[in-house]
Each structure stands twice: as structure tokens, then as C-alpha cells.
């Protein structure tokens, strides 16, 4: 009878929810573990907000990545786009006459859109493998960044610096410093943008026909075509959204670091992919969730912070722990999905 029960859980849960649940549970266990064993910083809410502040750009790009992955593709150009956007905006704000903040934002979104149009066209219309297309996209963006400006530099435009330093206080969650003065908890503007995007995309994926067609195309492209879904348009839009979000994410990143550099956002595409996977998106397509991706980013950065606060601050420890975590998540997913298949079969 116990057997029967297990079977029912697998029957009721669809793949997406099953993987999402695993992610959220593991994230909370990890965070609670950090609070209990490392205490100090982790027990303060600001620690959590700092994670958000530092990773708003990653959240945005990872969301775009999830959409492409759900529809069965991949985009490894996002890190390059982020670097290119930061550099272009930095050059515009610092090296032209009378720059305007709004225009710099338009530049960021414009670069993303352009990238999405070209990559979407190559993938959806010419049917070229997305990995190759975005690989070339990554090379191009990284190369262009150094062509635009080789040396890294800080932006000193006053309006921009003011925007960069804008802090939005979070009520009730502040803490008292050593002198007993109340320090309010805060988040940066980028975090608000990121949260809005998460909510918007969650709604799109869950309740719009476009969102559901991403899942359908990722689940079985041929079937989706037969069921009357415009597969080309869907794939095109998935790349368009992903690259545009990379553009927006690029601006948020720029807003956080306040500089342009060719080495910005190195390996961000891999972090975005890793976050999506940890959040329960399958690279085979058709399964995934934006909320999961959000928690994926949080899990990834929490582990980085745990490593850092444990005194293992050598850069190589971060690499090893992230890899180890990715490995564990992948193994859990692999085992759970295999179990599920078995349960359904018998």
C-alpha cells in the first residue's frame, strides 16, 4: 500500500512542480543551515538583501535563459551582451557631450533587441542550432566590447551616480549597528526591476498562450507544429525575450558596478544556465519555472556567500563549491526523474 501512495504523488505532480519543490526546499534548508552554523551576517535581513542587490542582473538574465531553455534552446551570449551593454552605456555617459540617462537605457534595451532579432532569425527562420548561433553571438559581443573601448573605467556622470546610489529602504527589517544606531535595510533599484520582471514573466508563462506555447515547443516541437502552434514565431520570440532581458540585465549590472570593462560578467551565461538548472529547468526543454529560476539564483549566491564567510575566500573555492552544488542538483534531478519514470511505468 505504501508503494501505491508514492505512485500517487508522482502522478499528481507534474515535472515542473516536482523540480520546483525540490529547489525551494533545498534553498531554505541551506539558508537556515547558514544562519544556524555561521550566524553573524546571515541572521541579519540585510545579508539577504545584499544577495539580491549583487545578483539582480543575474536574476534578469537567468529568467531570459529559462525561457529559451523551456522552449528547447540555449543562449550562451547573455554574458557577452551584458558586458557590451555596460561598455556602450559607460562610453556614452562618460565620453559624449550632454548624455542623457534615458538614452543610455534605450541603448541598453536596443542592443538587447538587436541581438534578439538577429539570433532569433538565425535560429527560428534559418534553423541553425542555437548553441552555435549564440556561441558566435558571445564571441561577437566580447570582441565588440574591446573594440568599443579597451581599458576599463568608472563612470562619473553625476545623474548616473545618483541613480546608482539610490537606495530603497525596506521597512521593519533594519538592524542596530555596534553603536546602537538603527540602520535601515535597503535594496537597489535594480532589484525592483528584477522582481517586476520575475512577476511579469511568471504571469506570461503561466497564463498566456504565448507562455504555454514555449512549453509546448520545448516539449515536442513536431507535435506543437501539428497542433497549430507557430513554432517559428515561438522560437523567435523566446530568443528575442532572452536577449532583450540580457540588455536590461546589462543595464542593471552596469547600475550596480558603475563601470565599463571588457571583463565584466565573465562566465555570467554559465551562472545563468546553472541557476536555471538548479531552479528545475531541464535543458531538454518543456520543463521549468521562473520562480524556480529566482530561487536558483538565490541558492547559487547563498552558497557563494557561505563559502566567503567561512573564510575560504580564495576564488577557486567558489568555483569548486558552485560546481559541487550543481553536481548534487543534477544528480538529484536525474535520480528523481528516473524514479518517476519507473513509478509511472509499473
Amino acid at each position: 500500500m505504501k508503494e501505491k501512495n508514492k505512485f500517487n504523488i508522482f502522478e499528481k505532480m507534474n515535472d515542473t512542480n516536482l523540480l520546483l519543490t525540490i529547489t525551494i526546499v533545498i534553498f531554505f534548508l541551506m539558508y537556515i543551515g547558514a544562519v544556524l552554523f555561521q550566524g553573524g551576517g546571515f541572521s541579519k535581513p540585510q545579508m539577504f538583501f545584499n544577495i539580491l542587490n549583487a545578483n539582480a542582473a543575474l536574476i534578469i538574465t537567468a529568467c531570459g535563459m529559462s525561457i529559451v531553455m523551456i522552449s528547447g534552446g540555449i543562449d550562451i551570449s547573455v554574458g557577452g551582451v551584458v558586458a557590451l551593454v555596460s561598455m556602450c552605456c559607460a562610453v556614452y555617459l562618460d565620453k559624449t557631450n550632454s548624455p542623457n540617462i534615458l538614452v543610455s537605457m534605450l541603448i541598453a534595451v536596443g542592443i538587447g533587441l538587436l541581438y534578439g532579432l538577429v539570433q532569433g532569425f538565425l535560429v527560428a527562420v534559418l534553423d541553425i542550432q542555437p548553441f552555435i548561433v549564440s556561441l558566435a553571438g558571445m564571441f561577437f559581443a566580447r570582441g565588440m566590447t574591446t573594440i568599443v573601448n579597451t581599458a576599463p573605467f568608472n563612470v562619473e556622470n553625476q545623474a548616473f551616480v545618483a541613480l546608482k546610489d539610490t537606495r530603497v529602504n525596506v521597512p521593519f527589517l533594519g538592524s542596530y549597528n555596534k553603536k546602537g544606531i538603527y540602520v535601515p535595510a535597503y535594496i537597489e533599484i535594480g532589484v525592483i526591476v528584477a522582481l517586476l520582471i520575475v512577476i511579469l514573466l511568471f504571469v506570461v508563462l503561466k497564463w498566456t498562450k504565448l507562455g504555454r506555447s514555449f512549453y509546448a515547443v520545448g516539449g515536442n516541437r513536431q507535435s506543437a507544429l501539428m497542433m497549430g502552434i507557430n513554432v517559428r514565431r515561438t522560437k523567435f520570440l523566446s530568443h528575442l525575450i532572452c536577449s532583450t532581458l540580457a540588455g536590461i540585465g546589462g543595464y542593471v549590472y552596469f547600475l550596480h558596478v558603475g563601470s565599463g570593462s571588457a571583463s565584466h560578467a565573465m562566465g555570467m551565461e554559465m551562472n545563468a544556465i546553472a541557476s536555471s538548472i538548479i531552479g528545475g529547468t531541464l535543458l531538454t526543454g518543456g520543463v521549468g519555472n521562473i520562480i524556480g529560476t529566482f530561487f536558483g539564483v538565490l541558492s547559487l549566491s547563498t552558497i557563494q556567500n557561505i563559502v566567503a564567510s567561512a573564510g575560504l575566500d580564495e576564488a577557486w573555492w567558489t568555483g569548486i563549491t558552485i560546481a559541487a552544488m550543481l553536481c548534487i542538483f543534477l544528480l538529484i534531478q536525474s535520480v528523481v526523474m528516473a524514479q518517476k519514470k519507473k513509478a509511472i511505468k509499473t
Partner: peptide
């Protein structure tokens, strides 16, 4: 474990240089 190659190798990609 039937993990997609790109993802499986992402692990060593991330950790390798460290």
C-alpha cells in the same frame, strides 16, 4: 546518470581552473 553533456560538463567547466 543521463545528464545532458553540456550541463554535465558545466561542472568541470566551473570548477576546473580552481
Amino acid at each position: 546518470f543521463k545528464i545532458q553533456p553540456m550541463i554535465a560538463t558545466l561542472i568541470l567547466f566551473t570548477a576546473g581552473r580552481s
